[in-house]
Design a protein around this nucleic acid. Structure first.
Lengths: 163, 163
DNA sequence: TAATATTTGCAATAAGGTGTCAAAAATGAA
DNA sequence: TTCATTTTTGACACCTTATTGCAAATATTA
């Protein structure tokens, strides 16, 4: 793993749950078992899951959690700053409980998304860039290519002739 | 516009069409009116449209082009290196006929995606970064925030309390 | 513990995208 | 040009991802 972020560790998960309780109380949002379960699941994984992937791994718990709720709760987490939707070239939303500055690499074959530690790259300074009035909340690097597993499969990824 | 890329100009469109003819011939792909119409539409716009947006703007032409074809042809263009899918936090694919190195800013409200000229930022060098075997084909910066139109609307974008 | 406010789950529906297959169009050889 | 072959298209069904309305259930607050 090239990822130094604490995402996935037990400490990270419990700190995240604590932060959720705080933010929910401050914003008059209920502390439900569903919200706890979803945040616990998301923050214990490092694979940047989609809503349905989270749903799949939680639904077999006692009582279960509905798919609709997973979608809604994840949206709430993004609003609360507890999670972020990460930019990727696929047509689906991917979530990350690590909201600290870091970057991502997205595999074109298996769609795996791995973290790139922000400390390994110089800061991206958009301060002096002309963005025509665009107000930046966040910015990061997205690399696309083949993960180690997929590139080692030695598949001829493209047989297209360019010249 | 903060975009110096030629995307959208007449010269860009005709050069792109010429390139398509070349690549299609080299790869034994047919030169169809549908492919021409779709590439012409995509390369003449600067708004990074979705497949359905392209479909909507060409279906009223003589004969028309089916939705399925638009989806399929865009995929072909990506394979041929004539277009790219750009990374964004929404759950849909957005296409760009400008395959040169540049970056994007994505508005959280209206979903507009604008270009950021690569020359305004230092190169991102992933050469010395530990990616655990990930093979990078391409990489770019994605900024998320509010475009000038949406931020000037003075809408309280979030009323969430963080502390 | 009761009243109130919020959230959930279900069901329906929208939106984005893919697979199949016969018909149509493009290509290449004669 | 014409014909046989190959490729592509369009129609349609269907899948996946995501959203909405509303009654029932749960959480919060007094």
């Amino acid at each position: 793993m090239n990822n130094q972020s604490p995402t996935g560790s037990n400490e990270f998960v419990s700190a995240k749950l604590k932060l959720m309780e705080e933010r929910c109380r401050k914003n008059r949002l209920s502390l439900t078992v569903q919200r706890r379960a979803i945040l616990e699941n998301l923050s214990s994984r490092t694979d940047h899951p989609t809503a349905d992937q989270i749903y799949a791994s939680i639904q077999d718990r006692i009582t279960g959690v509905s798919r609709t709720t997973v979608y809604r709760v994840l949206e709430t987490f993004v609003q609360l700053g507890l999670a972020q939707k990460i930019s990727n070239p696929e047509a689906k939303a991917r979530f990350d409980a690590d909201t600290s500055k870091h970057h991502h690499a997205s595999c074109l074959v298996c769609e795996k998304v791995i973290d790139i530690d922000a400390r390994q790259l110089p800061d991206i300074d958009l301060g002096s860039v002309d963005l025509g009035g665009f107000k930046v909340f966040d910015c990061s690097v997205v690399a696309v290519g083949l993960c180690s597993d997929c590139s080692s499969m030695d598949t001829a990824y493209r047989s297209i002739k360019f010249n």
